[in-house]
């Protein structure tokens, strides 16, 4: 334990006065708790935090925090956050969303955010279902799940494997957490925020309304990830072959400087003078 003075902000101080619309028992409450615990622990001033989301149940999260937030377009949270972080590197930028938002409609941005390695903390609350549109299959829904009338025979296609795909796309920090353990999850979130590159936290966050049938045993199913934090190429087959999707912990952590995002180039101190010089190029 670290003996310090009492923190100026407690976890609950990061909450806004807006009441979540989430169902009772929704896993996302645990993620909200974990996030506020991590922010309080890291002592980030509320005004220096921006939480960016897309559309879906979990994407409602920014408004529940007393921080800056943007509840934008379905699937586009990562690029919106990328623009913000590049323009304002002084901010702590957290991206929150669900499996449909992040892996389906926003799947391309997920790949390129992993590659681009901007310093973002991306929390995906994966409940393997589209909740807000009433229970359709998502990219992480098993192929034989038949409870959606949209896919009465099941989606029939293999599940998207977020951690393995993030690794293949070059993410420098990958963790998996469980919303039923907000204390444990807060460590992963805090580490992801501290990681100076793109950090992906895949959170198993059950949907009690549309997926009670096969998510009620997640608490028993999760287990510590045993093959921890290998940064070499072996981690790729390790995640692909060994990971059962329920291993909790940091799955991969690499030096984020191994590949880097846009460089900070020293600008001319006098902007007007810089423009004058640019205009002078246009003359003979």
């Amino acid at each position: 334990m670290t003996a310090t003075t009492t923190p100026t902000l407690r976890a609950r101080d990061y909450l806004s006065d807006i009441k979540p619309i989430w169902c009772p028992g929704c896993g996302h409450f645990g993620v909200l708790s974990a996030l506020t615990k991590a922010l309080a622990y890291l002592e980030r001033p509320k005004e220096d935090i921006a939480v960016i989301s897309g559309i879906g149940c979990s994407s409602r999260l920014p408004a529940y925090l007393d921080c800056y937030g943007f509840h934008g377009l379905h699937g586009r949270a990562l690029p919106l956050a990328t623009g913000l972080k590049v323009a304002r590197p002084d901010l702590t930028v957290i991206v929150a969303g669900g499996d449909g938002d992040g892996f389906s409609i926003g799947g391309n941005h997920f790949l390129h955010a992993c590659r681009r390695n901007i310093d973002l903390c991306y929390i995906v609350m994966d409940n393997a279902v589209y909740g807000m549109t009433k229970g359709q299959a998502s990219p992480t829904t098993p192929p034989d799940w038949t409870r959606s009338p949209l896919t009465p025979n099941g989606p029939g296609i293999p599940v998207f494997r977020p951690a393995a795909i993030a690794l293949a796309a070059g993410a420098s920090f990958i963790a998996r957490g469980f919303s039923g353990d907000p204390h444990g999850l807060s460590e992963l979130v805090a580490r992801a925020i501290l990681h100076p590159g793109f950090a992906f936290v895949h959170v198993l966050s059950p949907c009690r309304t549309f997926r009670p049938d096969d998510q009620s045993d997640w608490k028993q199913g999760v287990h510590p990830f045993t093959d921890r934090a290998r940064s070499d190429a072996e981690a790729v087959p390790a995640l692909r072959v060994d990971d059962d999707g329920m291993g909790i912990g940091v799955l991969h952590e690499a030096d984020p400087t191994a590949h880097s995002g846009p460089k900070d180039t020293p600008a001319d101190t006098d902007r007007a003078a810089a423009i004058d010089r640019i205009e002078a190029e246009l003359e003979v």
């Binding site: 310090t4 645990g30 204390h183």
Partner: peptide, 22 residues
């Protein structure tokens, strides 16, 4: 003064009130 406990250093965790259960 009380020591500051990181959330993950908390020892006495209990299941959530509405945790899904088999």
């Amino acid at each position: 003064a009380l020591p500051r406990i990181a959330p993950w250093e908390f020892l006495w965790r209990c299941p959530d009130v509405l945790a899904p259960r088999p």
